[in-house]
Design a protein around this nucleic acid. Structure first.
Lengths: 329, 329
DNA sequence: CTGAAAGCGCTAACAT
DNA sequence: ATGTTAGCGCTTTCAG
């Protein structure tokens, strides 16, 4: 009970393999009569072309690798970023007829696997997601000369789509200043990620322009790190009256720490997050945050990859941001 | 500038293609001298075997499809389930040397694509995630005779790993009864999913055993549906004193509705969720919930698929559950 | 417009 | 233990 081959279809239809191939691939130069014969045979046999054989013959593939830099155990296994990005990218790529091969590249071992996989010619291109600064993967893949784009700016100079992280952070801090807040702290993302660095820069520079000093706790984009960061900040500077968390997950953690410490939000301490994930609407009080629609960014990144396939230069794209004011600040 | 082939390596090393093939595939029957020669040539040329050619020759592949039934637009794009399941499954499968091809099968079109893809022999097996009852995909894939498992019990009788959804719901409701709650409502998941049905059954039967009546609002596992469901319940039965939400996301939505309605939790209304996602620790008050570790379930499902590859019968597995009591009930 | 034939790069008998 | 040879299933010149 094997699957029928193109030859089987040809035999059944009483035509040559070439004709079957032409019909299957939708070439125009086929007599209606033959086309009809072939289509019937295909249907009767339930024929589906063998992908490996086709790839081998054409030297092409319609698969792309989406490589997500993921810590081995998954720091926060329910990262909304992951979900939004992977789903959106899959949707866009799939409707362009591409298959998505998902690869997690957290460990050295998995990174090697990813490299080999790409080198084996399994994919036509690569999308990199959430690369940390020191990651050697972009460079080694780039050396192989594959079409490649990144979700978010990264090292290695590849085409990317990013948000204006610096500008977004600046807007958040400016808003807090306008509200009369004087001691504004921040909880950062992992500092080996460019997005974290940019958000920290936006915070720092805005504060420096007004002669105020930075109060920094380092987090890693997880709720728990926001919680712990906030506790530490409260200890370091009990008089702080505002905090800018570099993402909403950490803002959610900070909210909990403030609640436990008996501080009222926003009366005692104002909180601003970043990303505007759906959960930001459900905190108490609802979170003021900077909207950087990850889904639009993901879709744009996928489209950038498609355009690179078509020979476009792949110029970086920066998406706009916007402050969403809710009750937490 | 093409990639080097096995033949090129053979020429360079001055041996036959077979020898190269043997070395590359780690066969034992190779003289050390030849092995050395080959390894050097491989390294010098940067040779990586072509995947398509190998698949074609061996009639095998080490890719598996993970097919996620996803609504076209993505009801809640930051579904923690998606993230936890996809990442965990990828991790397990990748460390077993398999590649994961992710496919979203929400629309009829994408479903067809998934079928074709599997039929094209691209993958060695399939894992189905979050199938809705009416989905025709399991049946049509099963007809093709591929190794296949499901995350969560589904129609079609394939091997699966599931939680004891009915039992978990029963435990939650019993707990509320023990606390002296008398009017216990529920917000369900989408009723075409078996997990939703089971959780509803657990709720219903436990209540019926004590002669109490059900108060039901239908949700779809999203925060907003929990919010709206709770508002509706409050309107239908203002005197209710507890609610069992079929997942934590909806419980979070319910919490917001209760807050807006001025009900205190748990004093006026007790809330119990299901799943114990990380966010449950960060609500105000922290959520009492039923733990059904999705990650363990995902890992077990991946391992089930691997064991089916090895000829195991693929008997269903039911994972235990446990009530996690926090302050919301 | 159709068919015959030559590969794509690799593996797997088989022979040596 | 190594090499030779025949495919795996498809596409793609090239003749007809």
């Amino acid at each position: 009970m094997k699957r029928p081959t193109l030859a089987a279809v040809a035999a059944r239809a009483g035509v040559s393999k070439s004709s079957v191939s032409r019909v299957v691939n939708g070439e125009a130069t086929v007599t209606p009569a033959i086309r009809e014969l072939v289509i019937r045979a295909v249907r009767e046999l339930g024929y589906v072309p063998n992908g490996a054989a086709r790839s081998l013959a054409t030297q092409r593939t319609n698969a792309v690798a989406v490589i997500v830099s993921d810590p081995p155990k998954g720091l926060s296994s329910d990262d909304p970023m992951f979900s939004a990005v992977v789903r959106t990218v899959s949707r866009v790529l799939e409707s362009a007829g591409m298959q998505v091969t998902l690869m997690l590249a957290g460990s050295a071992e998995s990174r090697l696997r990813a490299e080999q996989f790409v080198a084996a010619g399994h994919v036509a291109g690569v999308m990199l997601v959430s690369m940390h600064g020191a990651d050697p993967l972009p460079a080694s893949l780039a050396r192989m000369g594959f079409p490649m784009v990144a979700f978010g700016r990264s090292s290695g100079g590849l085409p990317y789509v990013d948000n204006d992280n610096t500008g977004g952070a600046a807007v958040a801090v400016k808003y807090l200043l306008d509200q009369g807040r004087r001691r504004i702290a921040t909880i950062t993302g992992p500092l080996d990620m460019i997005a974290s660095q940019d958000r920290l820069t936006g915070y720092r520079e805005t504060l420096r322009d007004t002669g105020r000093r930075s109060i920094v706790a380092i987090g890693d984009f997880t709720r728990i790190s926001g919680y712990e960061g906030m506790r530490q900040l409260l200890e370091d500077d009990p008089a702080l009256d505002a905090v800018f968390a570099a993402n909403d997950l950490m803002a959610i953690g900070a909210l909990r720490a403030l609640r436990e410490a008996g501080r009222r939000v926003p009366h005692d301490v104002a909180v601003v997050g970043f990303d505007d994930i759906e959960a930001a609407l459900y905190t108490a009080p609802p979170l003021t945050t900077v909207r950087s629609p990850m889904e639009d960014q993901a879709a744009a990144t996928a489209e950038l990859l498609l355009s690179v396939f078509n020979g476009a230069p792949g110029t970086p794209v920066i998406m706009p941001h916007r402050l969403i004011v809710r009750e937490s600040a």
